[in-house]
Amino acid sequence: MNFKEIVELIEKVAELGVGEVEIEQAGTKLRIQGIPTPPAQVMSQFAVAHPMQQAIAPPAAPVPQLPPKTEEPEEAEAGLHIITSPIVGTFYRSANPESDPFITVGDHVSKGKVLCIIEAMKLMNEIESDIDGEIVKIFPQNGQPVEYGEQLFAVRV
């Protein structure tokens, strides 16, 4: 299912005033929830985490008083492969403060190339690319804490 097909599906759900649609196909699961009246409202958060897995953010919980939480993952262009953090820690662009960053935007990387360090509990974990391609975006700032699943790099394959 590609991005265009998903948008068409969302528009159809809205148009028909359907309550909820859930589709599972070849490892991809999609749930679209419409609101019957007033006119159907479409989920605005849409995170493309990984080509194998597309997830719609679940509907916001009806708890009015709670303040908005941490920033949602940035929307990414279709066709980009996103590398996410496999661990919790602090993101560094280079091996140490004196060396150059491992990679910059525009670099072509191959699978296995070290892209960054994530430090946790005094251990420097080297994060490798899982794909060949061109680095299009680097999400975190140098020295920024990152959580499991946080977006690190966008790679054009």
């Binding site: 708890v63 661990i87 919790v88 820690g89 509990m121 804490p145 959580e147 499991y148 699943g149």
Partner: peptide, 30 residues
Amino acid sequence: RYADEDVCIGPAPSRQSYLSISSIIAAAEI
């Protein structure tokens, strides 16, 4: 939603998240 800060520490299975000592300690660190 109610905590001041939140850190995602792993995928759904407990063994890789709520039972992951290193992830939890790293979260405390950051």
